[in-house]
Design a protein around this nucleic acid. Sequence first.
DNA 1: GGCTTTCTGTAGCACCTGCTACATATTCAA
DNA 2: TTGAATATGTAGCAGGTGCTACAGAAAGCC
Lengths: 178, 178
Amino acid sequence: MTKRDDLTEAATDYVLEHGLIGLSLRPMAAELGTSDRMLIYHFGTKDELVAAVLATSNERSMAHITAMEPSASLRDAVLDLWSTYSDGQVQRCQLMYVEAAALGLFGREPYASSIRASNAVWMAAMAAHLQRSGVPAADAPRFAALIDATFNGVLLDRPLDDEADSRQIIHDLAAALG
Amino acid sequence: MTKRDDLTEAATDYVLEHGLIGLSLRPMAAELGTSDRMLIYHFGTKDELVAAVLATSNERSMAHITAMEPSASLRDAVLDLWSTYSDGQVQRCQLMYVEAAALGLFGREPYASSIRASNAVWMAAMAAHLQRSGVPAADAPRFAALIDATFNGVLLDRPLDDEADSRQIIHDLAAALG
DNA sequence: GGCTTTCTGTAGCACCTGCTACATATTCAA
DNA sequence: TTGAATATGTAGCAGGTGCTACAGAAAGCC
């Protein structure tokens, strides 16, 4: 475990707590017990740091989704996926994904590229879970795309809804699909 | 039409083109043929300017959705709403909404408040269209919430998908609901 | 005309941004 | 023990940020 790896983990924790938009090296470095100087030394560039953080966050949430037990039906799969997705740790990672996606909307780098990479594996993992849960292989990717879009949309309005609203939306989606 | 109103319209156009995240007064003022000095003079604060821009953008997209003809069914309503939503001008407004929502994820102002206001009227308008299209009044708000979440989620990954992917998701949603 | 109110240009402040130059410490290999 | 590579502290640069102080122009009102 190199020093850079340690810093990446710590930086990821910091960003998950404070948000990605408007991230600044000096305050983060101070909380990590270092200096901006050292962050640049280890990562070369803020963009590389951000890319590393995004990759780490993605690995963390991937670990949760790949560890899921198969669900009993498509309907249950939606609800189970939402359980995983909206669980504390994973949800923070997804919040970071949403922020990165917003930053990438106009093509900003390194956000756009990182998002592209994350999304590919994430969607594949969701589709795999659907397939494990009995969804035909031909339908799994399409349903995964729909479910993922809805999940992200719900998260985007998270400060607006109370949790009951979110659950209602997910429930309706599950009912419509199942 | 006061000078401030003119500036608000022009600023809205600028933000719709250049994005909200990372917006800076000086470059915008230059393109509007003014100075940061004058923007602050007319709006008092960058935050007030942003709030005005967000309100204007919201009015513009609202105009489109309230002008829609009723759809023939829930299924058609989803597709028609998506047509409106993904049309050039409205889509840019919704992109701005997504950026503002991302900025508001951690409670930043004035984004969080603006989003709250926009979302309320927008959801009501969607629900109203569903109702006009024959959806029972009891179901309209719930479906509107689901549809809105999915639309926003699709937009969030817009740089990833080609348009065919987006259409597939919307089509699947329409099929599931209808 | 004078006078007040609305507007606008110039300059600059204080602070923050990512990043760097330079010198120093620490570590480890020969 | 020497020498090279790795790591780190101090200070600072150049450029950006929102915002302001001050002075002057323009425009309406009496």
